[in-house]
Write a protein that binds this DNA or RNA. Structure first.
Lengths: 217, 217, 217, 217
DNA sequence: AATGAATGAGTGTTCATTCAT
DNA sequence: AATGAATGAACACTCATTCAT
């Protein structure tokens, strides 16, 4: 971050603005993509929200799709980073698992953009994620993290053996993700406000219970 | 303007074509909407796939959105109808529940359109489903079906009491739906082909196990 | 009107229905054309308003434009017929002229369709009227009617000589027609409700005065 | 976003093209709208005539209707501006009035678009003019101009008192406007070429005569 | 005589992207 | 680095008219 030592003052200013512009564009794009999906998002709207010129968007990101890919990558990196910070290895297995379920639920709740982004990407058969090497690396770390918890639980006798960490991972995500991504149709089908404060708390309890029953010896 | 005037069995000739055209349009629309979502679907493509004139589409369905609503409604009616036909009330509770989990999974597998349709509808905050009275009626029947199974299970001592049938319903759907809707990103993240025959069978076993552990006394 | 003497009973029925259908179509077309002009009128709307099948419209009138021509012809015949019925030849010249001004004004007021139809026809450079022989015949009678009044007025010493009956005709029409056809923009420009009862009465008085001052010796 | 930012005389380069494009679109739109009315006008044709991209039309004017409104507003401003430039206050009342009648006639002759535009707007019940504040301001100035002439004429004893300037205004417009807007049907009805040079001159003389007789003491 | 299903050419409008400065 | 004008292909939707019965 000692840019001034390397570059003349004029350049420094330009660089700082450039980074800020990129950041504003990314933020606006995340918002627009998550609201309307890749297809429904409008480049003009992103540029306007970012208070940037449309041309800049193309200058920095190449195209709408490449911008989407960057936004998607960042979203995956964000959640994986947050998961790593949970520091589950220092907790007893049961607590670690409960904490992960809770974290997953709360992350989805705080970041509904993540869910819409992933849905959009699956509508497009993951063509953008396929190109992202970094996401794969982060993902491996995540799976091994859950695997470690499982192994510790089996060793302590709390968890039953033979549980596939991938299946468990998927199920932990599923029971939160599905509830939230389908909150609109769900609220109609089940004739209750799935997003009411108490409903959310009840769901979290139900999910923790589901996972613990699933793994317990 | 009555329904019988539109589909009388006698006056085959005049109406047969109309009904056939409507059916072709609906089929093509289901295909196109599920492939590309509401926003990404193209009216021209639907008409072409249906081997019908675009004008007919508007004649019968009013607009792209109304067509989507009809398609969506039909999709919900189809799954609810199929569920009713399972005749779970004559099975022992455990078997009934297992059968429901299996059915849900297999229905999603056979009807990936249903999943994409629901995702699309949630992206639009369920604005179309809100207008559909019939779907609400069908949904109530479905929830009470699961509730009956739970009650029978509690009575027989196999299931523990106090399980919310809505939460259970959501979880049964979630663990299948999430796996399949995110099969593209999932296959990358977890570096395995989630759609391989064996993977699918394994997931079904895992899901049945999850649900039975969740409800068992 | 002794159709039954000429045609067998079965035919009579058909004829009566046919005439009724034609009449309903013409009425509906007059309404729709005068509301929206030739270009803005919708064939579907005409058929619906007439409670007739669209095909009938084409069967009887050939095309939208030919239908418009018929409607227009009828409109001209109607006003010319009404003018002839005024029987102005038996009134003193001044009274005859006043009565004509009054009649013209009131006819336009009662038949706003006539005005819109004529405007529409002029937008199309009178291409439909050109084809109508009958309108020309009726028009001649009308001009000579006004000419007779003028001549009688000159003979009696009330009117000054040398007034062109065509110019007078045009002016009589103009001062009523313009006021009414431009009633919407006029009400804005002059910031008063030109269609209020009193405004209409005032305008009629003003117009009669204008014409009498114009011709008086 | 300020007006001076859009048309600065210095920064010619960037804005000149934009302003020129806007001007070309407006000119083409005036032409197309006056030829075919609002409904009959084609956006494609306007863009083509303007040698501009259709997208620009929407960029600058929002929609076909908003473009129409701008064209209409400009037309009203143009005629009101021209009227103000007549400088009638420095002429004797009679001459001022004659000059106004002559001007009105000649303006309509030179600007047949104005007439068609106004007709189109009245077909749409003045919905666009209603929104235009500027036109109302200009109109007030116009009415008071005629009022001043009348008052001066009454004061000099040339004109009779009690003439409503609005009625006079309407009549001055009417006797020219009607003749010209209905020149196509009129030429058929009266079986004479209303647009022949001599016919036009005769009509102007007739109109001046009509107005002077109307106001003279 | 009457019907309603069907059509192709168009209608206003919007889009992601590029050009000139 | 940044801008705003410009584009062409596509978009949902509509029209007057004809076909099959």
């Amino acid at each position: 971050m000692t840019a001034e030592a390397k570059t003349p003052q004029r350049t420094k200013h330009r660089t700082r603005d450039a980074e800020a512009t990129k950041a504003r564009i990314l933020k606006a794009a995340l918002n627009e993509f998550s609201r309307n999906g890749l297809g429904g998002a409008r480049v003009d709207v992103i540029a306007e929200k970012a208070d940037a010129n449309k041309r800049m968007l193309y200058h920095y990101f190449g195209s709408k799709e490449e911008l989407f890919q960057t936004v998607l990558e960042n979203a995956y990196i964000d959640i994986r980073d947050a998961e790593q910070k949970l520091d589950l290895d220092h907790l007893p297995p049961k607590e670690a698992l409960e904490r992960l379920v809770r974290f997953t639920w709360e992350y989805y709740l705080k970041h509904p953009e993540f869910i819409t982004l992933v849905n959009s990407e699956n509508l497009h058969r993951a063509k953008h994620l396929k190109k992202s090497e970094i996401v794969k690396i982060y993902s491996r770390r995540f799976v091994s993290m859950v695997d470690t918890i499982l192994q510790r639980g089996v060793a302590s006798g709390e968890f039953r053996p033979g549980i596939d960490p991938v299946q468990l991972n998927i199920t932990i995500a599923a029971i939160g993700y599905y509830y939230l991504t389908n909150r609109f149709t769900g609220s109609i089908i089940f004739e209750r406000d799935l997003m009411a404060k108490e409903a959310l708390e009840e769901r979290l309890r139900f999910n923790i219970d589901t996972i613990l029953r699933l793994v317990s010896a």
